[in-house]
Amino acid sequence: MIRPAFVEPVLDAQDCFRAVLEAMSRPGRVQRLTMALDAPAPLAPASAAVLLTLVDAEAPLWLDAGEEAEGWIRFHAGCPLAVQAEASFLLATGTPPALADLRQGSDETPQDGATLIIQVESLEEGAGWHLTGPGIEKEHRLNVTGLPPGFASERSRLAKNYPRGVDIILCAGDRLAALPRTTRIEEG
């Protein structure tokens, strides 16, 4: 049987969207979702909620979460599945795909760059990376566990292509944070 989606589809989607908007506007600040959501494994509540909030028939999705999760999101969101290079949304529960292989948009249409949702082990403010850029007053700190080593430097190699690029949403349990393409990461 297919598991249910949001209990309150309209209000829960709004609640989740505001958390994502807040996360994208203030990179590195961790948002917590409060709605009840019983998503199939291996989807964390936050990544499942972000998918339900943002993808639909107009947003081709790639995910590596297995058959049950795939069937669940296709049933509830009606989204087409796509290969990595063509997806506008991607969800990685395992090793994330190489950023340079994803849609980057063009200089005239940078908004066509993909949104990559990565499920990680934990997200904590106040330690780890030093983040600067739009949305950040001086510096935000974000500690992420569960990313492959070298992820930050792989991402920073794409920075020279701005405004082309990929925006990233990190999800752990019911928490999420975002790294829009404008955010600079210094490891420390």
Binding site: F17, R181, T182
Partner: peptide, 27 residues
């Protein structure tokens, strides 16, 4: 009316647009 007038498909489309707009300031 649906909550806040717009249907959910339209809201999702606008929400996706808003996130990209925030990610590329001024574009």
């Amino acid at each position: 009316y649906n909550f806040a007038y717009l249907d959910e498909n339209t809201k999702r489309m606008i929400r996706r647009t808003l996130l990209k707009a925030v990610a590329i300031p001024g574009h």
